[in-house]
C-alpha cells in the first residue's frame, strides 16, 4: 500500500488521538501506602531493601559518604521532621520508617534538571535517564527527601551479585527508586511490595476509586513527608 501525504498525516493524527483516548479512559497515577504499624512489627527487617537493591544492581559502597540507596529506613523524627512531638509519639520517635522516592506530583528534581534526564511520566512515576544525566547533582540538591544518590565512584566493582536483566550504572550519574517501572510494565508489583512479609506496603492506582490504595486513603488517617513544601508526595504513611 502506498500512502499519500494526506492520508499519512490523517493516520498519524488518528493514532495519536487513539493513544490519548486510551490513556484518558484508563488513567493511571501510581502511589504507595505504607502501613507503618505493620512494618514496625519486625524492626530489624531489611527484606524490602534487600529485594530492591539486589534487583536493581544497587552497589554497596563501604564508605557511608559514597552510599547509594533506593529504599532505606530513617527514624521517624528524621523522616517526618515537622511531625515532631515530645510526648505522644515517644513510641515512634526513633523507630525506623521505610523511605524512598515519593514520586511527587510536583517534583522539584524534575524542575531543576538542566537536560531533561529526569522527568515525570503520565502515570506519575519520576523517571531517570542514566544516559542523558550529566552528573551536575542539581536534582540531589533539590530533593527535600534525600531520595537521590550520586555514583561518586564506579558502582560496578561494588556489586556483590549482578542481576543481568537490569542495567548497571556508570560513575558520575544520579539514580533513585523508579517504583519498579520495569516490573509494572510486566504487570507485576514493585519488588519491595512483593518482598514485605507483613504486607505493609500497598501499591496501586490513585486514579481508580476502587483500588486498594484509594480505599485505604479513604478509610485511614495517613501522613506524607513534608507536604508543606508543595511537592505533593505520592507515598502515604499510616502511623
Amino acid at each position: 500500500m502506498i500512502l499519500d501525504r494526506k492520508s499519512f498525516l490523517r493516520l498519524t493524527g488518528l493514532s495519536v488521538l487513539a493513544r490519548k483516548l486510551v490513556a484518558a479512559v484508563t488513567p493511571k497515577r501510581w502511589a504507595m501506602v505504607v502501613d507503618a504499624r505493620k512494618c514496625l512489627q519486625k524492626e530489624g527487617c531489611q527484606k524490602c531493601i534487600e529485594a530492591c537493591h539486589r534487583m536493581h544492581n544497587v552497589p554497596a559502597f563501604a564508605e557511608p559518604r559514597h552510599e547509594v540507596r533506593w529504599i532505606w529506613k530513617e527514624p521517624f523524627e528524621r523522616a517526618f521532621p515537622s511531625q515532631e512531638n515530645l510526648y505522644s509519639q515517644a513510641a515512634f520517635r526513633d523507630k525506623p520508617f521505610p523511605v524512598f522516592c515519593n514520586h511527587c506530583d510536583n517534583p522539584p528534581c524534575v524542575r531543576v534538571c538542566p537536560t531533561g534526564a529526569t522527568w515525570k511520566r503520565d502515570d506519575g512515576i519520576v523517571m531517570m535517564d542514566w544516559h542523558r544525566c550529566i552528573g551536575c547533582r542539581y536534582c540531589v540538591a533539590a530533593c527535600p527527601y534525600g531520595s537521590r544518590s550520586f555514583n561518586w565512584l564506579d558502582p560496578r566493582p561494588r556489586l556483590t551479585q549482578m542481576n543481568a536483566e537490569f542495567p548497571t550504572r556508570t560513575k558520575g550519574v544520579v539514580e533513585k527508586c523508579t517504583f519498579c517501572e520495569e516490573r509494572l510494565a510486566r504487570g507485576e508489583a514493585p519488588a519491595c511490595v512483593e518482598a514485605c512479609p507483613e504486607k505493609a506496603m500497598v501499591f496501586g492506582n490513585l486514579a481508580d476509586p476502587a483500588s486498594e490504595v484509594r480505599q485505604l486513603l479513604g478509610a485511614r488517617y495517613t501522613v506524607r513527608r513534608k507536604p508543606e513544601l508543595g511537592t505533593r508526595p505520592e507515598v502515604y504513611y499510616i502511623v
Binding site: V112, T115, A117, C133, I134, Y138, V173
Partner: peptide, 23 residues
C-alpha cells in the same frame, strides 16, 4: 570539573530545559 559526566555537558544545549535555572 564538577560534572559527573563531563563528556555529556552539551546535553544542556542539546536538550534545552527552560524550567531549569542551570540552563
Amino acid at each position: 570539573v564538577d560534572m559527573g559526566q563531563p563528556t555529556r555537558v552539551l546535553n544542556v544545549l542539546l536538550h534545552p530545559t527552560p524550567n531549569s535555572m542551570m540552563f
